[in-house]
């Protein structure tokens, strides 16, 4: 199998869907000749033309609402925002409109749109271009929230997202765009609400999201050398969440640590921790459920400060040891 990048995996899924379904189109800022802020759409204009690869003005409010209206009328728009931080300007259309319309209208419409949000820190882009606010989205009934951590998952989940009839928030980690893994050329989809056990282990379950999946796997390698075996679970989709896989794993390992990049306070990891605490896994716990998330600070510019603001591999190792060796 060939290896491709996370960015190209996302593009490949979009291209394949656009080839097979003419209702699918993409709109966003600088996605045409420029190829998107992170190059994800590069070359798509040449294949599909400006009608279906719609370069928009810098108008997040209009283009997000436009996606909602087009989706209500039978299209399947993919909206690319340059940075997930810019979603604040589009939130009315996502939260007040897309997420609620079906419910408010008594089930008589649906809004099949995908909002692609490049998120996360680590690129020196400071406080307005580095956030991880997926918990905001996961809080809103009516939205599907996806957060892939590998090229393989990104491609399969993008296909699923495009074909889903609900508004889907698709978090892409900027720090993963150049990461590579085996990705089949053929189309495939990954169902929503199915977590992936990225590594099996015995002593503790790490539930990690986004770029923290890779960091947790690196931590697992180091810990293995010290005789600590951790299981790493990637939920892949936050809404819906695969509760069973998480609970079963914790019943097996008797310890749980949730690792996420977002500010630890009120982050999605708190949801996962509560879920474990309220489940049958509670009776099997040999240690309190722990969280390891970001410091409650705006993401700083200075590279050392930025690194210190979110969990790194060493932080995960240290945290795991503190739980296992207690």
């Amino acid at each position: 199998m060939r290896e491709i990048t996370y960015a190209n995996a996302i593009k490949e899924a979009m291209v394949q869907e656009m080839r097979s379904n003419e209702d699918v189109f993409i709109l966003g800022e600088d996605i045409g000749v420029f190829g998107g802020a992170f190059g994800v759409t590069s070359g798509m204009l040449d294949e599909f033309g400006p009608e279906r690869v719609r370069n928009t003005p810098i108008s997040e409010s209009a283009i997000s609402g436009c996606a909602v209206g087009a989706a209500m009328m039978g299209m399947r728009p993919i909206l690319e925002l340059q940075f997930s931080d810019f979603v604040m300007i589009a939130l009315d259309n996502i939260v007040n409109q897309a997420a609620k319309m079906r419910y408010m209208f008594g089930g008589k419409t649906h809004v099949p749109m995908v909002v692609r949000l490049p998120s996360g820190s680590g690129l020196g882009m400071a406080a307005q271009h580095s956030q991880s606010l997926e918990a905001w989205m996961a809080h809103v009934p009516g939205l599907i929230v996806i957060q892939p951590s590998t090229p393989y998952d990104a491609k399969g989940l993008m296909k699923t997202a495009i074909n889903n009839d609900n508004p889907v928030i698709f978090y892409e980690h900027k720090g993963l765009y150049n990461s590579k893994s085996d990705v089949p050329e053929d189309e495939y989809d990954i169902p929503l609400g199915v977590a992936d056990v990225k590594k099996e282990g015995e002593d503790l379950t790490v539930i990690a999201t986004g770029i923290m999946v890779q960091r947790s796997l690196q931590a697992a390698e180091q810990l293995e050398k010290e005789g600590i075996s951790i299981e790493v679970i990637d939920p892949r989709t936050l809404v819906p969440l695969d509760k069973e896989t998480i609970i079963e794993s914790v019943i097996k390992t008797n310890r749980a640590l949730v690792v996420y990049e977002a500010v630890e306070r009120s982050g999605y990891g708190a949801e996962i921790a509560s879920l474990i605490g309220e489940s049958e896994a509670f009776d099997f716990l040999d240690a309190p459920i722990s969280r390891l998330g970001g410091i409650a600070t705006p993401i700083p510019y200075n590279p050392s400060l930025e690194k210190a603001a979110v969990p790194q591999v060493e932080d995960i190792i240290e945290k795991v040891k503190s739980i296992v060796q207690k």
Binding site: S61, G65, C66, G69, N93
Partner: peptide, 8 residues
């Protein structure tokens, strides 16, 4: 914006 999208 929604109407604009429907028009699109």
């Amino acid at each position: 914006p929604i109407g604009t999208g429907a028009a699109l």
